[in-house]
Design a protein around this nucleic acid. Sequence first.
RNA 1: GCGCCCGUAGCUCAAUGGAUAGAGCACCAGACUACGAAUCUGGGGGUUGGAGGUUCGAGUCCUUCCGGGCGCGCCA
Length: 594
Amino acid sequence: MSHDIFAHLRGRAIAALRLLLPELPEEAFLRVTMEPPREASHGDMSTNAALVIGKAAKLAPPKLAAELAAALAALPEVEEATPAGPGFVNLRLREDYLRAQLPIVLREAEAFGQGAAKPGRVNVEYVSANPTGPMHVGHCRGAVVGDGLAALLAKAGFDVTREYYINDAGAQVQALGWAAYWRYLEALPVASHGLWAEGATPEERKAAVEAAYGTTLQYGGEYLVPVGVALAATHGAGLVPPDTGRLALVRGFTVTAMMAEIREDLALLGVKHDVFVSEAELVAEGKLEQAEALLNSQDLIYRGTLPPPKGKLPEDWEEREQTLFRSEKFGDDTDRPLRKSDGTGTYFANDIANHLHKIERGFDQLVHVWGADHGGYVKRMQAAVAALSNRKVSLDVVLTQIVHVVKDGAPVRMSKRAGSYITLRDLIEEVGRDAVRFTMLTRKADAQMEFDLDLVVQQSRDNPVFYVQYAHARCRSVLRAAGDPSLENLAEAPLDSLTDPAELGLIRRLAAWPRLVEAAAIAREPHRVAFFLNDLASDFHLLWNKGKDDNTLRFIQADAPAATQARLALVAATAAVVRSGLGVMGVTPVEEMR
RNA sequence: GCGCCCGUAGCUCAAUGGAUAGAGCACCAGACUACGAAUCUGGGGGUUGGAGGUUCGAGUCCUUCCGGGCGCGCCA
């Protein structure tokens, strides 16, 4: 694991407090933090220790802060420790200690920031788009956030499994099957089914299928045409007329084809999953009944009726008896139906089966990335996971808000009906995978975001993708000019010459990376990585520009080889941390800008 | 009607319960015979939607009101 200077000095502070207050119980130290102060003039880091344990220790915080400061000032890492404000202790680190972080970064390179292995296993489920068509922009954000979050958790030291739940059961897939069957019929010679006359219009053909089989065709997507053609090529007219078995075959074939497309889309986006779990397979295996039995054994299931929604009643409301799960006992607002009034399972029930499947495979923490329209679904699922795992397994849900795509200052409509549906492929083609991924991570997931197609390809300060890539390219440019020294050699370089505030500031930023990984992972906020990289790039560009004003700050000094080595070490470490961060985001660092 | 999410500078957005709420854009004023100025420096801009509360300390937690988004049995 990487050295985290904040965690390290927090440990030092707690050790000092134990000496000062030997009778204090361990729990008293839990709330002690060591973090960078907002105000840079307060020093490199600051601890609230005297404030949070003053009460337990029966000591006035300012007095305790003074004692702690005296103890910390004696540490080899610390230049100065001063009590401040209501009871903070501010630390200024010794420059030697800061500079000593560079060899650590250089030896670990892209692995720098890796957290210590954490106990337990985490399952991150994301995308889980219905296999009813190609991925669109809405799915894309969830995919990128989920993939970034999974990478972030792994970086922080968690054992992560990335999972995709294929919603291949239920009414939508039924409808998909019919639509594919329609396209199949169209791919056959008319004589093989005789549903319409030769030369019938698309509308007439669609109406003929609906009339002949008493169905409503919801999916009319052009993307199903090749599926129909493939079915016709394989089976000829052998699937006419439709029956239960033939439709199941068509459905299976279509879902497989759609999943192949989705996998291609995911590959284009660079989004990876370790496991694909099929809802239909879970149902077929009887996982639903198993989950139901488990809940029933705890008396969490009953037959009953739900109260009607408050306010205006739906037109067709009538009271029906259903199989209900007592989710209210686990903090939900009401109990929830497991089975519809006709006895078939609800989506919720299938999803309970899905979660039982996860729990059985030994995961301790479940994380989901869902669209914001599933917000109302979170509590009941958490209730179900608590019930199934005897409250041992946690479920966190990260909700991603809508993405508004903007081009030339005007919103781009994404409605399927309007026909101007933006697929993920369109988007990647337009701006590139890296820009898509980076941009999708520059906002908190639960904030709506605007995706400006013009901005993300713009080469300027306003575009964080470019700005960060440019910093890396500049690093590489310097290192190339210096003959690409090895990281091993640079890690041995004497660093005493790094004394400029901009140089030390950059080192401080690099050293903060492990702490950022840890904090962002716990908060499930991968966007923090993007903000960190933007700040890091800013620190580097600043230093670069200082070298323009002051020649002695340029990285390569022809007459000072030792200073040059030190600066190259700094530049190489910067490049390594940028790569480490971009690695979490799944963005490729570039060697040069074009 | 009920539930969930959100409300921070003119705009887009940050801020594990920490000290004087920060960046970028826009606006104004500056810096290159380049290790790529596609960058950088400085400046003005705020009652964190309103009001209470908890806390040594609140943009952050609780209550309530206002405003926006999403959802609300037999869709997934």
